[in-house]
Design a protein around this nucleic acid. Structure first.
Lengths: 159, 159
DNA sequence: ATAATACTTGACAAAAACAGTAGGGTTTTA
DNA sequence: TAAAACCCTACTGTTTTTGTCAAGTATTAT
């Protein structure tokens, strides 16, 4: 259940590649395509959305490519996925402006809403920079320690 | 993003109806259908899965219907959704026995895994009983207080 | 200038997943 | 023994997903 679309997945991976070139080197679609094994044409669609959303900017012509529009620690995973897949809305009655018809079943309504908020909060705490450092943990979620165990993280530098 | 299928949603709502009759009164498909506005035929599919999974049992013949197989505080939302939608697997490479091919992209791999675990943990802490009482909160997630604010819960009984 | 590089855009199509219907059972009890 | 109620499989229409294709436009090195 709850599968993420390939657009969302590829989008994050593409942003990761672009972030690696930041701020010196523009990264071309072709490079992303080769490194992440996604077709150029498909990436074009994805990067177009991310560009319109202001997350990246493009430089045309020879030597061009894509560059982050702001630093990697200012770009959350949530902001990437929101552009590519829309907001987290586990049920149609949680769609933006979607007036829930059956208020009597509000019990489950609140449940899905709470879960959605939990997911969103999690994704907001994780930035591209965290992703690159392999150093991400849930702020609103599990305890740091538990998280680190659960995802088998390399330990952070000790004082 | 991350939409829940109607099967999952209806399943939880159906379980909620069945729980309301527990332990005295078997609840018929027809009753669930009317109260939750879902077709009988569709509910049959859903309840069939839940029965095979051992979450409910059925009583045939006149006066029959469905009954919880164990008490409402022993049935988590996670267990219901797992039967109807399969395990939380945000990406195909997190499918059970799905060997992830591209280990180099393991950075995102761990991210999706962590998110999935977060969701699963959340859903495991909430039981049908919690749902019926309108009294659910995230164990692994937000602080109780914050949660209550965020989902605009009716306050619990005061001592 | 102009060729090469690289991004831009919109239309379209195959495939998978989803949502639900149809129609024929079987079992139990009043 | 008939009615109530569950049981099971197949099928189908729709939507979403996952891309491809083709024809651009903009920029820069030479």
């Amino acid at each position: 259940m709850l599968r993420l679309s390939t657009k969302g997945q590829y989008g994050v991976r593409a942003m990761y590649e672009i972030a690696r070139g930041y701020p010196e080197t523009p990264v071309t679609i072709k490079e992303i395509s080769e490194r992440q094994d996604v077709s150029v044409a498909y990436l074009e669609q994805i990067l177009n959305k991310l560009r319109k959303a202001g997350l990246i900017k493009s430089i045309r012509g020879p030597g061009g490519g894509y560059v982050l529009n702001r630093s990697a620690d200012k770009i959350s995973i949530a902001s990437i996925l929101n552009e590519l897949e829309g907001p987290v809305a586990l049920t149609s009655c949680l769609d933006p402006e979607g007036g829930c018809v059956r208020i009597d079943s509000c019990v489950t309504h609140l449940l899905w809403k709470a879960l959605g908020e939990q997911v969103e909060a999690f994704l907001k705490t994780i930035t591209l920079k965290n992703l690159m450092a392999g150093d991400f943990y849930a702020l609103g979620g599990m305890a740091k320690k538990e998280m680190r165990r659960s995802i088998r993280l390399k330990p952070q530098s000790q004082p």
